[in-house]
Write a protein that binds this DNA or RNA. Structure first.
Lengths: 211, 211
DNA sequence: CCTCTTCCCTAACAAGTGTTTGGTAGATTA
DNA sequence: TAATCTACCAAACACTTGTTAGGGAAGAGG
């Protein structure tokens, strides 16, 4: 990575942190600058505007995310249950790597999407919904998921449960991202109730690690 | 309700809507005023500051919420499963009634809590965690919930899944708040997977309606 | 040693922010 | 009718905001 781009990335990382902590609109370029060790005006040597920092943060995150998602969704060998599992795991790994970016995305995406500049967020959310709902519907069709499942609702349920974690998850905590993903999946798939008789294989089999 | 207070409530309702839509800090008093049909300065006849509007909105919501919660938590006749059920239902009803306020709470509470003025948010979240975790622990202890449940994680899971709904739920949609609560409970309690053999009574019995 | 580039600082600007002050039309009360 | 009060408007204030323009220190390359 050229020196130039490395500095950009460093500043974007700081900015993402502040955006996540204070919210985009409450964040001042002077705060970003201070936390990065330079003055407000100097940021404009690297970036066009505060908004363009936000855009680059979100684009970078979505690119990385979809790289992972596409690999999963393109794998025809995976059944709906394994696909869902892999999607959740991948999402938590993304939270682990791009925590602040995910938090910003989760906080601001909805209202930013109205702006033409951030139309790519709308597309992303559409693709998102497609991926999850298709997986859920496949699962209902082939008997992996409950036939009485309200797919629209289940989609929102899954989407929210996964992404909100970005607001409290901190890397280096007592659980790894994969461990949290496992717990989440366990709750989502099998519920928190105690069940009468369920083959253990369906609820606690470790999922395959993507390479 | 005296004329004076009615006008206050009306203005607060408008303000809550804008706060929920644009976020607190991105909201301008001029926008609130315009949407309420008066000029920015006139708001200060009714309120001390923009911040005090926010405070009143959040306090009103939390008061209403805890009125409902206390009734549930004080009911010694309810087992953990029924308590959890009632809490979720009550929460969705609160979303139904105070949608914008809930959305604001969910969006801004975390960073507002740092401010001394909003210390009551920290207390509320503590009481919150107490209520949910106690219920979960009771359930694990008496065998209603899975013994391997990570209560800390399950608490966050429940809290988030319930409140995020405020960001997309709109009253008058295709599902009532109670219906959505039911679906959520079904997913949370029993999961989205098909189960082998489960007595139907444990998963689709209608819950008691609070009077 | 000179020149050029990189990266930052200093200082300022224009627009937008929450808030205050003084006034006023219209209803209410004496 | 005169006095008072209510709920608002008009206009401004002080301050913060994102952003820009010009300059300068430090190093690289010749």
């Amino acid at each position: 990575m050229p020196e130039r781009a490395a500095r950009r990335a460093e500043l974007l990382s700081v900015a993402a942190g502040v955006f996540a902590e204070l919210g985009y609109s409450a964040t001042t370029v002077r705060v970003i600058a201070e936390r990065a060790g330079l003055l407000a005006g100097s940021l404009y040597y690297h970036f066009d505007s505060k908004e363009s920092m936000l855009e680059e943060i979100l684009r970078t995150f979505l690119d990385a995310l979809w790289t992972g998602y596409d690999a999963i969704l393109g794998d025809r060998a995976l059944g709906p249950r394994e696909t869902l599992r892999a999607l959740v795991v991948e999402s938590f790994r993304e939270i682990d790597r791009h925590g602040p970016a995910v938090a910003v995305f989760q906080k601001e995406a909805r209202q930013l999407a109205a702006q033409p500049r951030f139309a790519f967020l709308t597309e992303a959310q559409r693709d998102f919904e497609d991926a999850w709902r298709t997986t859920l519907e496949r699962g209902v069709a082939d008997g992996a998921f409950r036939p009485d499942l309200d797919v629209r609702l289940a989609y929102r349920f899954l989407r929210d449960t996964v992404w909100v974690a970005a607001s409290w998850y901190r890397p280096g905590g007592r659980h790894t991202a994969d461990a949290i993903a496992g717990q989440y999946l366990s709750m989502v798939l099998d519920g928190i109730s105690v069940r009468s008789t369920i083959p253990t294989a369906t609820r606690s089999r470790p999922w395959p690690r993507p390479t």
